[in-house]
């Protein structure tokens, strides 16, 4: 058997194993992640209507629907098929898995996009997963539960009441910095201010649609008002450019 056919066979065996087991494990992960809320909705005795879950899901789809599809498309050329099933289950792709893969490739001196690079990335993501699972289990699973039980109630209450504005304040800045799209950021700010301070008080029932309206209006305006020098001719866009930000 020649060297090339041997290599070809080894790689197709690798592809076969990773895509078969990658898919199987991801489907089990998907099932388990849905089992928890399914239990709460159907069996826990909580009064949650299926129709209200669907309403909430529709609101979410209006806001994030595009991103659900675009993110896998964005990461595929960088991660390769086998790592896709790892990355989208382990999470924190941009801030953890991609750097891990790149550092591993640099350490052993292989290029991304090559087969050696792909194997190095798979091994690096396994390493990252090992560290991540361990630290989550110890510091959040074990110590976190204990920590919450000893924190005074007035601090817990402050966290509960004000966590949302606190998280969002920082996340907005991070998103603006990582997206490097100042025009979109200005449009988003203007649209959001109009929606929250003008439309919501004026139109009864607007509150429910505020997020979706702002997102859709911003997306349309950002496209219409885009910098045509940079984005006008579609061909000039660097396909490899990826958002480095707080993506999935």
């Amino acid at each position: 058997m020649s060297k090339t056919t041997e290599m070809h066979q080894a790689l197709s065996a690798f592809d076969k194993t990773t895509s078969r087991w990658g898919r199987i494990t991801m489907i089990i992960g998907l099932f388990l992640s849905l089992a928890a809320p399914a239990y709460l909705v159907f069996f826990s005795g909580l009064d949650i209507e299926v129709s209200s879950v669907l309403t909430a899901f529709a609101a979410l789809a209006a806001v994030f629907g595009v991103i659900w599809i675009v993110e896998p498309l964005t990461y595929f050329p960088i991660l390769g098929a086998s790592s896709m099933y790892q990355a989208f289950m382990i999470g924190n792709i941009a801030n953890k898995l991609l750097p891990a893969a790149m550092i591993a490739q640099a350490t052993i001196g292989v290029k991304p996009g090559t087969r050696k690079g792909e194997l190095a990335a798979v091994a690096a993501i396994c390493g990252a997963a090992a560290v991540h699972l361990t630290s989550l289990f110890i510091f959040v699973g074990l110590l976190g539960t204990w920590l919450v039980s000893v924190i005074p109630t007035d601090i817990v209450q402050t966290v509960q009441f004000y966590i949302l504005p606190t998280v969002l304040g920082a996340v907005i800045v991070q998103a603006i910095v990582s997206q490097k799209a100042p025009r979109s950021a200005v449009i988003a700010l203007a649209v959001s201010l109009i929606v929250i301070f003008v439309l919501v008080p004026l139109i009864p029932g607007m509150n429910l649609f505020a997020t979706a309206v702002a997102v859709i209006a911003t997306a349309v305006l950002a496209w219409v008002l885009r910098d045509r020098k940079a984005f006008g001719a579609a061909k000039n866009v660097d396909e490899e450019a990826i958002p480095e930000g707080p993506v999935y």
Binding site: I67, V191, S192
Partner: peptide, 23 residues
């Protein structure tokens, strides 16, 4: 690809922005 570059990023910033300002 220009749509892919502009629209998802803008949608993401807008989602966080409008939720934040609503607070």
């Amino acid at each position: 690809p220009a749509i892919m570059m502009v629209v998802p990023g803008a949608a993401m910033i807008a989602a966080f922005m409008v939720l934040g300002i609503a607070e």
